[in-house]
């Protein structure tokens, strides 16, 4: 879908801006930008993605190859919304093993059914 063409009606549209000082115009510019960005920030705060989850696992000491496999499996099981890093850490705590060991067990296909959905 593309929008229709429109002639340059700047002189008509700008009327409400004409009287603003440069400083007021700057304030208006940034207020509009902040309003525009705000819902994008809210979405980012409340959602996650496979890449975010892999980046968490990288930070927890997994290799990129391991992180990819763990996140793919978690995606299949619809577990991404819990945070894959949290699931691995919780498994490690429950089994009293290290985070890398918990990851290795999951990579071998064990304990997925025990993870909180």
């Amino acid at each position: 879908m593309t929008t229709v063409e429109r002639k340059d009606d700047f002189n008509v549209r700008r009327r409400h801006l004409q009287k603003l000082s440069d400083k007021q115009l700057h304030v208006r510019f940034w207020a509009l930008v902040d309003a525009l960005v705000q819902p994008l920030v809210v979405e980012a705060r409340t959602h996650t993605t496979p890449s975010i989850e892999r980046s968490v696992l990288l930070r927890m000491g997994f290799s990129s190859v391991e992180a990819k496999a763990l996140v793919e499996r978690a995606q299949e099981l619809e577990l991404l919304g819990r945070g894959v890093g949290r699931l691995v850490l919780e498994l490690a705590k429950a089994k009293r093993i290290t985070v890398p060991d918990a990851g290795a067990l999951l990579l071998d296909g064990h304990h997925w059914d025990e993870l909180t959905p």
């Binding site: 979405e43 980012a44 705060r45 409340t46 959602h47 996650t48 993605t49 496979p50 975010i52 989850e53 968490v56 930070r59 927890m60 995606q75 991404l80 919304g81 819990r82 945070g83 890093g85 949290r86 850490l89 909180t116």
Partner: peptide, 26 residues
């Protein structure tokens, strides 16, 4: 690319790492 891969974080969402943005129990 990557459509339908964004997932809502549950109330208990966690990411036990530094430099993480957004809701996180940790």
């Amino acid at each position: 690319d990557g459509a339908e891969t964004v997932v809502a974080r549950s109330a208990g969402y966690g990411a036990p790492v530094c430099s993480h943005f957004g809701n996180n129990i940790f």
